[in-house]
Each structure stands twice: as C-alpha cells, then as structure tokens.
Design a protein around this nucleic acid. Structure first.
Lengths: 196, 196
DNA sequence: CTAGGGTGTTACCGGTCTGTAACGTCACGA
DNA sequence: TCGTGACGTTACAGACCGGTAACACCCTAG
C-alpha cells in the first residue's frame, strides 16, 4: 500500500499536486510560492529547480488539470461503450456533480479572469485547452446524431461555464440549480429538430 | 462645457470612477492603491479619507457598477414602453453588445472569483446585487407573458454569464459568438410552450 | 569508498502591497 | 481676520512577493 499518497511522491509531483489544489481553492494571485512549497512539504529552491518561474508552474498546473478532466471522457466511453447519447447524458451528470460538489469554478476560466494581461503566457495555453474541450463536446454531440451539433455543444458549454461562475457569486441555490433541467431540455429539443 | 469630465469632479468621485475602470480592466488583485490614486490624479491619503480600506473601495465600486447596469433597465422601459417582450429582446441585444465590445467579463462575477475567501465582505454584496439582477430578469420574463419565467431567466442568466467568461478564455470567436442565436431561440421556444 | 545529483536550509535581494503619521497648503465662510 | 476642513506631500511601517546564492546533507550508483 502506498501510504500518504502525497508524502511518498517525489518533490516535483508533490509541488504540482499541491499547487493545483491551492490555485484552485484560493486563486492564482491568492497563493504565493512560499505557501505552496510549505504545503507540499518542500522548499522554494526545490520548486525553482523544477519550474522556471511561477508562470511556468501555473501553466504546468493547468495542463495537469486539463489532463485529469480529459480522463473523464475515457470514463464515459468505458461506462457507455458506443452509446454516444448516453455519454452525453453522463457528461451532463458529471457537470452537475461538479457544480454541487466543488464551489469553485473551472481552473482555466478562473485563471483567464485573474491573469488579465493579454500577453500572459498562460493565456494561449488556456485557449488551446478550452478549444480542445469544445471540440470534444462537439464531436460527442455529432456522434450522438444531433443535427446542429456545434450549436448544442456551444450552448451546453456556455451553460456550464455560466453555472460554475454563478455558483461562486450566488451559491448553489441560484440559477445553476436548474442546470440539469436546462441541459436535458436542450438535448431533447435538439434531438427533435434534426436527425443524424 | 465641463472640460476633462474627470478632472473637474471631486476627488472621491474621481477615485471611484478610476477604481471601477482599473478593477474592471486589470482585476482587483491586479491593481494597487497607489496605481489608482495616481491615475485618479490624487493621492493615497485622500483615498483613505473617503474609504475605510481597499475592501471598502471594492464594495463601493461594485455598488456603483451595479447602479450603472441598473440604468439599462430604465432605458429599456423608455425605448419600448409597456412592450415587455421587446424589452427582453433589447436585453439580449445589450448583452451581445457587451460581449463583443468589452472583452472583460462581469465585474461582480470576476470579483467573486478573485476574492475566494468565503468571508470576504464583498461577497455578500455580490450575492445581493446578483440576486437583484436575477429578480429583475425574472420579472421581465414573467411580464412578457412567458410561462416558465424563472427557468427562462435563469437559463439566459447562465448563458450570458458563461459567454462573458468564455470571451476571456477563448475570445469572441468561441461559443459566445452564438449567444444571440441561443437566446432568441430560447425565447421563441419558451413562448411556444406556455402562455401568460 | 567515493563521486555526484537531488534535496533541504538559511539568508538575502529588490520590489510591491496596504495602511498610517506628520506636516503643509489652499480656499472659503463667518 | 481667523479658523476650519478638504486636499496634497513625504516618509515610513510591516508584511508579503518572486526569485537567487551559498552551503550542508543524504542516498545511491559506480
């Protein structure tokens, strides 16, 4: 049995894991290098031996987070092999769980808001990762036999993005509470208007 | 003729105006007191004579911004007196303009993301103002004769919130480009399923 | 045993942050 | 004329920030 899960990992991995968690909870500008290294049970020098700068660490964290999120898609395929429509509904359920469980929104969206400098190196990474996510959802909608796949995917994207923000400003009892109903209604509506 | 528009105003008003603008552009944690006072053509002491702290300034800025946004509703009523459905479409148009023109999202949502401390004094103000905005949109939908007014209002809210975030991560060519089509489609759909 | 790489420790740099103290200035009104 | 209040200026406190230098340590491979 691996014990501590974090304690036994190598410093670089511990830093990456801890930084992801702390950036997520407190925001990028809300947490400093010292706090990260201390929480990761290491020190500043070791961090700077593995990452060029805080910006570099931010980017690596975003990539790691996106990678974890990407694993969800594989889970959908495993749980509903071949059934793309079921996978789409699984996506809705996963999104809804994310809303109620998390409280803090999407790391990439939050980072985009915090890092307002238009030339910040993390911004192109954010854009790239977000576009990849969108492409996956569009593909899923299309494979599920939905006519206006792009429009449905974009609508669902915006709804989720908005819900994750809304949770942070008015809580889970606000508009985001209706997310599942909205999403399911949209899927039904789009399936009605067009066929594959 | 009033010249400078900003130069002639009293220090407190200049500070409030400048802070709103700078918070909006660079984020709350991205701009310091010194930068604000310098841009407002005044100094730190004067700021602290008018505002208890930076947090106080943040709250006053949020209130002022919400007040400006509230003026939009009166504009809708003036431009389409009595015609609630036209006002709803005007809201959609206004929202779309906001997306393409602005580039930075909603100040309150951005602040909620930046100020992750759950007990931050600005958070209850944000919640209060956002709930007021939602109530107004619900009322408008209901008065426009839409059956499930709450659900439509919440859906439109999430769509706009999501679009304003999406613009910041992937730009105006992303999913937010379809905002008007989505919103108008929803209004049509909701008008079809129920009557006043 | 030894060499070397990954790691930890301490101290430090220069900068920025919020917030305050002390003092000077200027206009206006009684 | 006097005084009162709003405003400006300078300097500073104390904390935190990202990032670096120098050095000691320990484990492992050869």
């Amino acid at each position: 049995m691996e014990d501590g899960t974090v304690e036994r990992a190598r410093p670089r991995d511990r830093i990456l894991e801890t930084a992801q968690d702390m950036f997520h909870k407190h925001g990028i500008k809300g947490v400093g290098i010292d706090a990260i290294t201390e929480a990761a049970g290491t020190n500043k020098m070791t961090l700077y031996r593995h990452f060029d700068s805080k910006d570099d660490l931010i980017i690596q964290c975003l990539r790691a987070t996106a990678c974890k999120a990407g694993a969800m898609w594989e889970k959908f395929e495993i749980e509903h092999p071949g059934d793309k429509l079921a996978q789409l509904h699984a996506w809705v359920r996963m999104a809804a769980d994310c809303l109620t469980a998390d409280g803090r929104g999407c790391d990439m969206a939050n980072a985009a808001i915090e890092l307002s400098e238009t030339d910040h190196p993390a911004r192109r990474v954010i854009k790239e990762l977000k576009e990849a996510q969108r492409d996956r959802l569009v593909t899923l909608c299309r494979d599920a036999g939905i006519g206006q796949a792009e429009l449905l995917a974009d609508t669902l994207s915006l709804l989720l993005e908005g819900a994750r923000v809304s949770v942070q400003s008015v809580g889970t009892e606000g508009p985001s509470a209706q997310f599942v109903r909205m999403a399911e209604g949209l899927i039904v509506s789009f399936r009605g208007t067009a066929a594959g």
